[in-house]
């Protein structure tokens, strides 16, 4: 026993590391390679899921990719595909189906705002899905409120760092210049303008 004590101690240490890794309290040297490899494979699966239009799988993979790599783009892409692009008229999707996926997509985006590394593009996308895909088919007041809050937050951030729209700061300042009771209407008319332009 005494003779093998160092071996037992080292084996116990290795076992402790395994338990710590399993419990998430520690990352062993080299563990990141496993994550990088997993991420590569998940990108591959994500592409396949996109081709097969398996939106739930896309969202699930996107959440995992985001967790490992901090890439928020995949979640936004899956929300865009599931809730916006495939609901365009050219896709002939039934209204109920389109509404279901639009609501699901904004749920994916809204629930992860605080966790995404770059949430700003997602705010704009969520607003567009609300405005273009949900509100025309739904009378929910809650959806309207959420859309207004989401867009207000996006305007306040000016579209985020390297924001897509350099005029958004001006838009937010115009929005603030409105009396509080007219601000919602400002957003709605602004969104109507944007959608009409597109």
């Amino acid at each position: 026993m005494t003779r093998n004590l160092p071996s037992y101690l080292v084996a116990a240490l290795v076992a402790f590391c395994i338990v710590s890794v399993a419990s998430g309290r520690m990352r062993v040297v080299g563990q990141n390679a496993v994550d990088s490899f997993r991420c590569f494979n998940m990108y591959l699966d994500f592409n396949l899921a996109t081709v097969e239009e398996d939106y739930l799988l896309m969202a699930s993979l996107a959440a995992q990719i985001e967790d490992i790599s901090g890439d928020s783009g995949v979640r936004e892409f899956s929300a865009y595909i599931a809730g916006y692009s495939t609901s365009a008229d050219s896709h002939n999707r039934p209204d109920q189906d389109a509404l279901h996926w639009a609501e699901t997509a904004v749920k994916w985006l809204d629930s992860s705002v605080a966790l995404r590394n770059k949430p700003w593009n997602g705010l704009q996308l969520a607003t567009m899905i609300y405005a273009d895909r949900i509100l025309p088919n739904s009378t929910s007041r809650l959806a309207r409120e959420q859309m207004l809050n989401t867009y207000a937050a996006w305007m306040a951030s000016g579209g985020g760092p390297n924001g897509a729209n350099p005029l958004s700061a001006k838009v937010y300042q115009d929005y603030l210049a409105c009396p509080p009771h007219q601000r919602d209407n400002y957003i709605l008319s602004h969104l109507t303008q944007i959608m009409a332009t597109e």
Binding site: V10, R27, V28
Partner: peptide, 8 residues
């Protein structure tokens, strides 16, 4: 393995 565990 022990050395890698300690380093970890």
């Amino acid at each position: 393995l022990g050395a890698l565990a300690i380093a970890s």
